[in-house]
Design a binder for these strands. Structure first.
Lengths: 225, 225
DNA sequence: TAGATTGTTAATCGATTAACAATC
DNA sequence: TAGATTGTTAATCGATTAACAATC
């Protein structure tokens, strides 16, 4: 039972970038690339790129580099994109709306199969041809269909109740847009998208100089006393 | 000119979580908390929490812990949330739409002051009482108003052209939802929100076991030969 | 064959955790 | 005063970078 080495999340988070850029190369008929060239374009060291890929296998050729199409295919498999995934959306608000209409997901095999809402005015209608169901039928639906991923796009006060249902019914992944921190369940992985956190990070970045100045001065003053 | 120590982005990314949780504590009238208690709730070691905060100052008291309200205030200042920020949105599509309607941003001092579009059917209309302007008037608008942050929510083929305008006019930050990797400009910071990358990461997570198995087996086979 | 570039081991760097004296 | 918990220094761990032998 060895061989079960874990790959760090930092590595995984870089793979979609490689994948995206390789896709662009294919579009302009580039068939071969070295880690050095990738490195210059992606602002990641060549060494790191080679290390990342070698977590999964030896996809290159000495003296040649990487075959673009082949590497693209491999990364697609590593990311699980060779399989279809069924997605449901919890919450027919703005975010749910935006995601449903984003065709890139569908093109990569992510299939929206239902939306769940509590607002009776929305139940029974459709968004982009996907049915909106009563949130109370959620558990039943999951038990009947193969749900891989649930998008959580509801206010935080209802999030706990819903996630319990998702964990209990072994939904494989939660894509969390709600403003709560979820722990992964026994059989359920979680990926957070905290827009508010992201905006706050940007706020820090644009004010950084001033902030650092203020706080380091304060610390210096205290230290000097 | 010393004292200009830099704080790592990993630290900054944790601050909004502290901030959010402290806000929740205030709501339920908790006035004091230790790093140990925070630690249990946030799944971050107490040591790390203390290290993070001490990048900016000494906000606690030995034998007591932290005053919740005071710490909340300090983090708010560290994140630049004590100031208002003017935001414009480039692209009146689904994402732009979703963000505009998300009141949490407004409550934290992020003020939407304009939307820019190229679709003539949308120009002149409003979303949530914010005007939609012709994208061609963007540069003029920026020169006349104080734009802190531009949200980039347009297809990638037009992204390059627009970002050039933003850099040139020293917009302080770009919140990038477009499927391109932006480099920070001389005076412009960038924060990426790559939804597609995030979804791919989740895809990896839910398929991880199988993926690791497949690839480590492959490597073992190769090694054995 | 000579040149290029990989895969991989070793060195470095940075971030996290542990430990503890200072002090409320 | 005794107990609790900070701020901070030191130790550990993990991730990134450098170096180079293997090999196309």
């Amino acid at each position: 039972m060895n061989g079960e080495k874990n790959v760090s999340l930092a590595v995984i988070k870089r793979l979609p970038k490689y994948y995206r850029y390789l896709g662009e190369l294919i579009d302009v008929d580039v068939s071969r690339i070295s880690s050095k060239e990738l490195s210059e374009r992606l602002n990641i060291t060549a060494s790191q790129i080679r290390q990342d890929l070698n977590n999964f296998g030896s996809f290159g050729l000495q003296g040649y580099g990487y075959n673009v199409e082949l590497l693209y295919e491999e990364i697609s498999r590593i990311l699980g994109l060779n399989k279809d995934h069924n997605i449901i959306i919890i919450g027919a608000g703005n975010i749910g709306h935006a995601l449903i209409n984003y065709s890139d997901f569908t093109n990569r095999g992510f299939k929206f199969i239902g939306i769940f809402e509590k607002d009776p005015n929305l139940i029974g209608t459709k968004i982009n041809n996907i049915d909106i169901y009563d949130i109370n039928t959620l558990e039943n639906f999951i038990q009947g269909k193969n749900v891989d991923i649930a998008v959580l796009a509801i206010p935080k006060n209802s999030a706990n109740y819903i996630t319990k249902i998702l964990y209990k019914n072994n939904v494989r992944g939660i894509w969390n847009f709600s403003n709560v921190d979820l722990k992964a369940g026994k059989n359920t992985k979680v990926e957070d998208v905290h827009l508010m956190d992201s905006l706050m990070t940007l706020s820090y970045k644009i004010n950084e100089k001033e902030i650092i100045e203020r706080y380091t001065n304060k610390k210096l003053l205290i230290t000097k006393r």
